[in-house]
Design a protein around this nucleic acid. Structure first.
Lengths: 348, 348
DNA sequence: ACACTCCTTGACATCGTTGTCAAACGAGTC
DNA sequence: GACTCGTTTGACAACGATGTCAAGGAGTGT
């Protein structure tokens, strides 16, 4: 094989570089990996050959032989990559990984525990260096195998069950209680609860926060709907409450898609300025709606950053007892949560 | 190494399975890959050993040795993985890939041509089987190398320049012209144009469509602003037009983030029911705004599906002259584009 | 000149798996 | 029994790159 043919080779290998530079493959490897112990003249010849051939290292081959077997790729097991929370997590992970020349894979679980397991397996078969997991399953003891194998894991949004692992969570109870207390402070006593699937840990905690805030004011929950998972379901369920014999004067919606559905139900009845609503989690354009929507907001980008930092610290060899990091929520007052209720406004 | 120690081994290899089953590694490989020519008794022993050891094939090792070197991973070079258009593309790619046990990597380019090239290189070093590219660069001739190397490519949203490759595009000119004609039909003559970076091919085409629609009615463009890339920039620029000596009665906004900025400018001046607006591309909750926003909508999920199908057909060995697929836009009438202009409503 | 030390270099095995090809075995036929 | 054919099996090299370790050369000191 002559020099012209080497130039034309679609995927030049490290051996091709070695041949062109007149050195051994190991010397090329030393240059590529920045190892000391290569003479300047040989290093120069290698670098010229790399440029001429446009050699690109093959990371899959390198990872197989290299100590530690790193693939420079990490994985995210997300709820649905196209929803804003998931895509913000993805972007945060990507930004931290990019600074370390690490790429990110992701897959969408759609609340299916079997899909979660299959994704973890698929990523492990591709030797992902670490994984961020938004779990759908109710027990993650099956992941012990990854932990034992040395793959760092971090759970986001929902805590791990049956496994000792790092987690980045939002204080769902406090956030929910804050929203409900805000509605109470604006005179509401009959505050409906619209919640997500009870199988989801975060939904259960938000319901807990709702109940606690009501209880603090001696209020009993009357209108409670669980297991809503889409905007459409929420619109239908809330519509039924609004059309019923004793409609609530306010609503705490425990998830942003559900908030959107509840708003549609209010608007379709012309009640958007009459019934107060506060939602858990923000969503794009909430401030442009009429009335603008009061929410308790979480910050998925920041959660993703915290999670990525944990993964990379573990990949860097740091070792510590698995810990849970709580990221604060923030009440954003915009209008929908301040519509006065029959009890009048009182100090929060 | 005895059987108990094998069970405890974090990453059992195909050799471990072979040893436990009492066969050669090649026989295990035959069973794992569904190759014929293994006796039922040996296949059974292999399957039992696989279950006992929880053996998972190592795809990086397999891809290195296997004919064709497939990694069962494809890559998406997107504008910003956290924006809805990009994340819908990703999700579409993922859904098609999932059916074929192929995983997806992505990276965000943020309109930076250098970042685009770096991402392509990073994916190639990881042996991505194929790539979907939303290009930021103004010339993609550098990708000839991937094409020659046999990696299928498909361009989405913006056509390839300097390279012959498949593309999935929206008919930006027709879509823009439709929106503008709609505004004209509602009596508007002074229709502002708010557009994205002129370096972006789709922005240029939408401007072309805007001009053509005006020209069809003998209207000259008066208020034209290019190179807006954020909501904030759009709000500022449109605000200046609205506050100026001769404000436009309507606006064609050529990108959804820009539409959102324009709406903020209108609302902050109480003009949202006075000045008509039609935007290019839909966004979540456009129908819940006041007035609800008239848009020309594209369908990124469908674009992603079409692109994924093309990639997988090429990966399956099909060969055809690179083609461009146009996905239609759709005018969605909601209110903001129907505010009457000084010329009265006339038939479209 | 000889011995010792340090630096550079390259031979060769390795990583986990698959492709190639030959050997062994069993069944059927003459 | 000898021969042929088909099936099963496994030895071994290969993939692209890195880890290990020994050899060779240059420089220094006695």
């Amino acid at each position: 094989m002559d020099s012209a043919a080497q130039v034309a080779r679609a995927r030049p290998t490290l051996r091709d570089v070695a041949q062109l530079a007149g050195v051994s493959p190991k010397t090329v490897s030393r240059v590529v990996n920045g190892e000391p112990g290569v003479s300047p003249s040989k290093a120069g010849a290698v670098e010229r050959a790399i440029r001429q051939l446009e050699y690109r290292p093959n990371i899959t081959a390198s990872s197989l032989r290299r100590a530690g077997g790193r693939t420079a790729a990490i994985a995210a097991v997300l709820e649905d990559v196209s929803n804003p929370f998931s895509s913000a997590l993805y972007r945060a992970l990507e930004d931290v990984a990019h600074a370390r020349d690490v790429m990110v894979f992701a897959g969408s679980v759609e609340e299916d525990p079997d899909r979660e397991r299959a994704l973890v397996r698929a990523f492990a078969m591709r030797q992902a260096d670490a994984m961020l997991i938004v779990p759908a399953s109710d027990n993650q003891a099956y992941l012990t195998r990854e932990v034992v194998g040395g793959t760092p894991l971090v759970f986001v949004d929902r805590p791990p069950v049956g496994l000792h692992a790092d987690a980045v969570l939002v204080d769902n109870e406090t956030g929910a209680a804050d929203a409900v207390r805000h509605l109470v402070a604006h005179g509401h006593r009959d505050i409906a609860y619209l919640g997500d699937l009870r199988t989801i840990a975060t939904a259960r905690r938000r319901f807990q926060g709702y109940k606690e805030a009501l209880s603090d004011h001696g209020i009993r929950p009357v209108h409670v709907v669980h297991d809503l998972h889409t905007s459409e379901a929420a619109a239908t369920a809330f519509g039924a409450l609004l059309d019923g014999p004793s409609a609530p004067t306010a609503c705490f919606s425990a998830q942003n898609l559900i908030t959107i559905g509840a708003i549609r139900a209010l608007r379709s009845r012309g009640l958007q300025h009459r019934v107060a609503i506060a939602g858990f989690d923000d969503f794009p354009l909430a401030d442009l709606l009429e009335p603008a929507v009061t929410v308790v907001s979480q910050d998925p980008y920041r959660m993703g950053r915290v999670a990525a930092d944990l993964l990379f610290r573990r990949l860097d060899g740091e070792d510590w007892e698995p810990t849970t990091h709580l990221v604060d929520t923030r009440l954003i007052v915009r209008g929908s949560g301040e519509i006065a209720g029959p009890g009048g406004v009182r100090s929060a």
